[in-house]
Amino acid sequence: MGVSAGHLLALAAVLFSIGLAGVLLRRQLILVLMSVELMLNAVNITLVTAARWLVDIDGHVYVFFSLSVAAAEVAVGLALVVTVFRALGRSDADDADTLYG
């Protein structure tokens, strides 16, 4: 029994859910960022799966784009985390509440 599209989509769903739970539940910014990456890659898996299933190259192209954008996003995200850490002495998501009215 080979790896079917269903398996891959299930894996993507699991990864996405884990990432989502991480984003919602973790307070450590670094971990939130990692969870976001997890969700992003789950979507990438979905795209690649769909591309293979439909025999269409578009999905692969999307993934290349999304990977490169993700790299840039991580750089920005990490820089923000560093800045937050420098400003607050911690990198806890709930402490960054300066804009709360």
Binding site: L20, V23, L24, A93
Partner: peptide
Amino acid sequence: LQTGYVRSYALFML
């Protein structure tokens, strides 16, 4: 509704 916690906003988005 505006708690100031990013996580709650993310929940609303979800």
